[in-house]
Amino acid sequence: MIEEILITARDNAKVDPYLNIWTWEISIYLFLGGMTAGMMIFAAWAVLAKKDDLAPFASNKLALWAPIVLSIGMTTLFLDLEHKLYVWRFYTTLQVTSPMSWGSWILILVYPVAILQVLSTLRAGYPKLAQLAERLPLVTPVLDISESQKRRIALASIPLGIGLAIYTGILLSAFSARPFWNTGILGPLFLVSGLSTAAAFVLLATRAHAEKLLFARIDIGLILVEMLLIALFIVNLTTGSEAHLNAARLILGGEFTLLFWGWFFTLGLVIPLLIEILEVRGSRLALVTLGPVLVLVGGYLLRQVMMDVGQVSTWTQYESQYDMQLLQRLER
């Protein structure tokens, strides 16, 4: 028997009894960041591949949602900061070893391009909104220029979108201290998941049947790739060091097994996959809208599961000998 315990009381906020630094704010941010990336990529792809007819929503309307969704994500990211008044410190430096520093600069680049994407498709996608905007000075020439550079903007959006999505994964995978996260597969996994959630968004938003079918097919492919990446993720963990094995155990029989396999994998991947396959095969079930909803749920759950399990997975875990609630008495 090994008994390894803390014999002095320690109640470090969000570290004890187990790491709990990041909760829904960061999960939401990572989810929306990935979805933004997917939106930018699909919108750019539709432009570059001239899919106006087949995919009218993706070509003209999708771009508007990317900065909106990203802004919600950025808001929750800000909410998570403990020392909020110092947020500007992100932009006084580039720390080359810090994925978070890279991420904050990527966001600085993503924002203008995402907005240019909006501007270059605004008249086509949202004519009324464009008219309203054009009442303001300078908007008309800006829209003109943006439209003229539409392809270039699209070309720029794709690498930035990929960068954004992969960064949300690398952000976690760079933490060698959290064995569950510590695999490069998280980058591609979050990219594919981001694309899948963006596809689901299109499925929910478009009224064009052909576009629905197209994106259902794309999403089926993405979900299958995502499953493959998850398999690789698990292979990676289970063939790792003891710390990685312990981390794998958390979802392979451990306390997070149900959350991972029941909620995320089954509800968020398998069921929507089946629904979308039925849809592509022509079934006109009432639950077809459920497919993309579940994909979105699954996309969020992926980040939430990663957040929860990753923080519990650790190199050092001591049980405290005392009831930490007692320390609240010190506030007498």
């Binding site: 028997m1 014999i7 002095t8 009381a9 000998q321 005392y322 007692l326 008495r329």
Partner: peptide, 17 residues
């Protein structure tokens, strides 16, 4: 004593497994 309470707030009964 607040400093020592904070270090060891309670006692525990040791029991063999």
């Amino acid at each position: 004593n607040p400093l020592l309470f904070e270090l060891m707030p309670e006692n525990a009964v040791w029991i063999n497994p």
